[in-house]
Design a protein around this nucleic acid. Structure first.
Lengths: 340, 340
DNA sequence: TTTCATCTTGCTCGCGAGAGCAAAAATGGA
DNA sequence: TCCATTTTTGCTCTCGCGAGCAAGATGAAA
């Protein structure tokens, strides 16, 4: 009380210090920082004034340890060449933070590393794991799930058949049918599908859907090419290797890409390597509607995922303690621009 | 011992359980998971076998609480439109993880939010904070530093004059002089400088250096234009507003950009809005050497920062307990491509 | 004023580890 | 083989907070 001046070394100010300063018990101090706790406005104010003066903030490690809820989620990601990841991260970090969740960011270096990444997260006792990476196989997920290291394992922006994971994604099947119809209506007849890497657990149904739908409805089997990563530069190499030297009739009239990262790489090749015109000679579609897709340089026809809605749903899932099936598909939107 | 089967619910397997299973004490179990601890190979193995079987992993929250070292660093970021952020994050997440550091990712929504973001981090008792965002003002940093909420506050890829922060950055002054000389040597005489937002604490000395150097050495004051964010789309708007309608003599012959994000936006405008040729009509330089800069579409002359080296130095700083001046400038490299 | 319900406050115990020390075991040299 | 040294192991105490309960304060109804 009497001008007892500690050198405000906030790193080690504890609730006890505040309690003494405010003339209440330690538990009242902690209660003041919990939104659910019952506390009188009088002591709340006393505590807050003292805390402010001493520079006290509660230690979430201890809170987490005692309550068995960490309010921490791990975000596992690996596909850093794909610009859409930046978009997803922006939404995830902003909205999760608004809802009081902190994020542990883990770079899953490669498929073999996924298990370690999961283990890493589990050591911090995260409440949930969000996968926005692509390199995971079922075995790893099964192991983690079986060990019940997390309450929830959420696969974001990708569908999963694993009944124990929660998948929040766009409706790829519907989307690709819409794209296929659009492409056909616009008069394209020789599509080539440019696909990304095949993963085990978390699938994109885009290639399968497009190919089957096109074959079923328009009678021909589209050519498909796969790229080992969602990397524009890599996509460019593959497309160059595939198309360079072909004469006009052997070229596709449109390249339907699994996402914008691939589409951007492919478009660069059409223009600068094949020296053809985009849309007139070879059209192109993407998926994701990354910011670049709207640039005057690309004007890419693509398909927008409702990322904000998906993340809002994600926080709803995180907050829920029910044990139901949380899987959900969202409807996206075709964005027609000049590339197709 | 005798086939006592718990339903391997790893979420609640504690060191005590493993101790019983392995026939040692709890402390021996914990020691087995610490690299510095003294333990016999025999008990190490016993513990590891038991831990593996039960699915035990140490609880880093508790370890952190007891040892006052969290092995956690906060990464504060805000500039999600800039593709270079993805590059930095990839390096940071990969190398920090390799060295045993976990990352708490915090999206600093805006300048007013920086204080909250810092507070957020401090509640998790992170060992250090790394800023790769741009919106911080001195007041906020001073408050955080004064409260000593973190052992280290590192400003990455940006220089700071604040003596209490650690700045790990590229030598902007040297870099811009090199760029200015290159530009002049290549015969450009009417440069325009396209700058990003001005921040308080963490400066980029690029604009100042370029403008002063050019004026001092070549006698004329270059025109400068500022963009409110490192966002290609925003840069495109500003450049369009600035240059559209000018006749040829009033146009710059080169646009020197503070970074690639701006350069990419500007280049799109030159081609698709002004309908001019890049390099022949208006040349352009960037900074960062983002992946896109190398694409056949841009072929941007730019300046590469040695991000890997910088992050390696960062982990060295994190690991050090000395109390010296850790500020360091790295030398980058001019990457000449076709855009200038 | 009394009585009972409600709100607030303080307390015991526990969360899962680490520091640091003391006891026990292993090791080595004469 | 014996004693001194070194290594390994176990233990007490602590880190900062929360759950849940009991005691105390407050207030409304009788």
């Amino acid at each position: 009380m009497a001008g007892e001046k500690k050198p405000a070394f906030a790193g080690h100010v504890t609730a006890d210090d505040v309690a003494v300063a405010a003339g209440v018990s330690r538990w009242t101090v902690n209660r003041a920082f919990r939104k659910d706790a019952s506390i009188s406005t009088k002591s709340l104010e006393k505590v807050m004034v003292a805390a402010e003066r001493l520079g006290y903030v509660p230690d979430l490690r201890a809170a987490s340890l005692a309550s068995d809820r960490s309010n921490l989620v791990a975000l596992l990601i690996d596909d850093f060449a794909n610009p859409h990841k930046l978009v997803m991260m922006e939404h995830l970090t902003r909205i999760l933070r608004r809802e009081g969740w902190d994020i542990l960011l883990v770079n899953t270096l490669n498929r073999d590393d996924a298990g370690h990444a999961l283990l890493n997260a589990s050591q911090r006792r995260v409440d949930a794991v969000i996968l926005i990476g692509i390199q995971f196989d079922d075995e790893v997920l099964e192991t983690a799930l079986h060990a019940r290291r997390f309450r929830k394992l959420i696969i974001f922006a990708r569908t999963s058949r694993n009944p124990n994971t929660i998948s929040i994604a766009v409706d790829d099947v519907h989307a690709m049918k819409e794209i296929a119809n659009y492409v056909h209506e616009r008069g394209y007849r020789r599509p080539m599908f440019l696909a990304g890497p095949r993963t085990y657990s978390a699938h994109l149904l885009r290639k399968e859907t497009f190919v089957e739908y096109w074959r079923g409805h328009f009678g021909v089997e589209p050519e498909t090419v796969a790229v080992a990563a969602y990397d524009p530069a890599l996509a460019a190499d593959i497309v160059t290797d595939t198309l360079a030297g072909r004469n006009a009739e052997a070229l596709p009239d449109i390249i339907v890409c699994e996402n914008d990262a691939l589409a951007i790489g492919a478009m660069d090749v059409i223009r600068h390597k094949l020296r053809l015109r985009v849309s007139e000679d070879i059209a192109i579609t993407g998926f994701d509607d990354v910011p670049q897709a709207d640039s005057p340089n690309y004007r890419l026809t693509t398909y927008r995922q409702p990322i904000s809605d998906m993340v809002e749903y994600l926080v709803e899932v995180l907050g829920s303690s029910e044990d139901r099936d949380f899987d959900r598909l969202f409807q996206g939107k075709l964005i027609a621009r000049e590339s197709a």
